[in-house]
Write a protein that binds this DNA or RNA. Sequence first.
DNA 1: GTAATAAGTCAAGACAATTGACTTAATAAG
DNA 2: CTTATTAAGTCAATTGTCTTGACTTATTAC
Lengths: 401, 401
Amino acid sequence: MNDSRPIRAKSGTNHEGTSAHNRRVIVDALRINGALSRADLARATRLTKQTVSNIIEELERDGLVSSQEAVRKGRGQPSTPFRLVPGGAFSIGLQIDRHVTRAVAVDLVGSVLVRAEAALPPGGPSTGAKVILDLVAGVRSNLARIVRQSDKRLVGLGVAMPGPFGIDGSGDDPWMMGAWQKFPLLETLAAGTGLDVGLQNDAAAAATAERMVGAAHGLDHAVCLFVGYGIGAGLILNGELYRGANGNAGEIGMALLFADGKSTPLEHRASLASLYQHLSADPADPDLHARIDNLALRGDPSIEAWIGTAAADLRWSIHLIETIFDPQTVILCGSAPEGLVNRLIAAVGPLLPSIAERRGRTLPRLQPGMADPWSVALGAAAGPISRAFDPHFAAILKDSR
Amino acid sequence: MNDSRPIRAKSGTNHEGTSAHNRRVIVDALRINGALSRADLARATRLTKQTVSNIIEELERDGLVSSQEAVRKGRGQPSTPFRLVPGGAFSIGLQIDRHVTRAVAVDLVGSVLVRAEAALPPGGPSTGAKVILDLVAGVRSNLARIVRQSDKRLVGLGVAMPGPFGIDGSGDDPWMMGAWQKFPLLETLAAGTGLDVGLQNDAAAAATAERMVGAAHGLDHAVCLFVGYGIGAGLILNGELYRGANGNAGEIGMALLFADGKSTPLEHRASLASLYQHLSADPADPDLHARIDNLALRGDPSIEAWIGTAAADLRWSIHLIETIFDPQTVILCGSAPEGLVNRLIAAVGPLLPSIAERRGRTLPRLQPGMADPWSVALGAAAGPISRAFDPHFAAILKDSR
DNA sequence: GTAATAAGTCAAGACAATTGACTTAATAAG
DNA sequence: CTTATTAAGTCAATTGTCTTGACTTATTAC
């Protein structure tokens, strides 16, 4: 009688799904290719001229695209290129890290318009939540000051913080990240801001940023190896960020290396945490970044030693990523001081021979990513933009409200 | 003037894409849940009753579903469950391995109806192609003998062979797999059979099989660790097989392990190839499988030694897979003798602590997969069925003709 | 026996893409 | 300088698919 095991099924779609997809495809095409005429768009998307005209008209009405001056090229009526309007949409990104929190406001094309930073007070979420909400509110009102009516065009609030998520913390957790992970942060933020809130780990956010404005722009298969306090991989697979079953895909910090007969998690050797430990430095020291940058530039032997190990481990990681994901390219990014990242990239080469060495490659196997301490916050903000405007399977389905 | 860098864009969609998707969603729901009434389908897929009725009518006309006896449950008009008709579609799968080639015919629900096997003559594709075409033709005509009109319902020919694809071979290649990989096999098969031809590596095929009828049935995130002559991972991500940029995703045989200060590819230690070498056995020996099975059952010390190393490496691999993909479950399968696989599975436990140890798990972290030498061929055949009937993003787009 | 409930159908309607003819604006060719 | 050709883009009618709301049917609960 009560045969109530739930029925599992994917969601169907309808006209609105079709229309939504086509809108996204057009926005995506403009993002990847820059300005395009309606005729170009029709050819590229395989939609009819008429359909493209209708969608462009609608997008223009919504303030997402605008026309540029007509261009004559050869015979025929000149074409009218359309481009994305940067101010067509905005998003707020929030990076919550161990000793700093950053918030940014970005526009549709990924330009950062407002930045703000705060130190998290000790004591975890109970006191920190208010600081964060204030930080977001500040960025939001600053954005509104710069761009009139921007609040109406705010598509969401993206949060990036170190993962993994949903795992019981280990206890020895000086920054209380474990407590943060238990705290109903997303709900608090959603309630406090009234915005749609999304979550990514920091490597995923870095990948999202690279995809919107960086080395992964327009790529469908790319992996960002992110060296921060920990180490993680942001996975762009089939043109979208891959999250795994529980949002923890790419958390390779716990991958095990073997050396000297024992196993060590990758992040014990290739991460800023390991560097701080190696240098006996205090990670909360605000000048630490600059000092490390300096040491790296001068070729300090202590740093060089760490770079040697870390680079070897990264070389292995890159080989592993190429072997497992077969991506178009691997992007090395991180929240490390720029000088250090550069030294690291230099030390990583030459790469190990792998399946990625194929004839006809157009992209380098390894590319440097953004070396900007704000890139994770940017990626956090890029999340909602991508969710709102990029074509993806879930956006077609009926339950993707 | 000639600004002809190609415009990159995703394809748009239209009514037909919608309709195709909804059909697939319904077939998928019936595959996952067994028989369902139209009302159930409407609720599960969020389509309207009317739409579901129309689609079911069409599917019934096409011979893909059929009604069962009405069931009374509680008040209201009894519902009429519909189920997939096994004979609604067929597919042929072809496994090309080093010293054996297998072909099977399977139906819509993944039952194997016909099997055939042949030894590949030495000399690579020049002589082998004919053998393969004959094998396929034989299976096809046998299927036609069993099921009238089956040829009309043949959706394609799926091929599985060891990867990686598109890489220059290494030369020392006694079975000429390198030559096979250069040979235009797919084109030859397409021309010779008139069927749609698809290609997967053997681990991917195993995963495809597990998804249709095995432990990954109905899962959206699962990884099959496949121990065969080499070792590979078949990746089910977001409900579809992930292929990577060049079809080589999951080829983890070349992943590097470190021990004794030097690095070794995983497949040098955890693969049948390594076992054969360890035993100084001839892989072409037709009785080898049975003999190894026997030895494994008896606890032969030489085999036990190999199992010890291989299990440790698999334990590491599983940990790595959990760390990187965050799947719902990992499935250990292989073309190894069943006794050996069982010993191996027993020896792999207990698993290393990982991110996969979370409260509220419903599936085991590791599950045994099919231990059937025909499972790769089955997976090969499942490829075209999945392509034709499973919901996926590409099926909605206009250029998926 | 009647009310309530659920499955399923019918026919009209809504929505978004398609089609084919048409307009517009440019260059190429004579 | 005129005309043909080409390409961008619009207009209006059409088509395909899902949706809506009223209706029918079959069963159980009271």
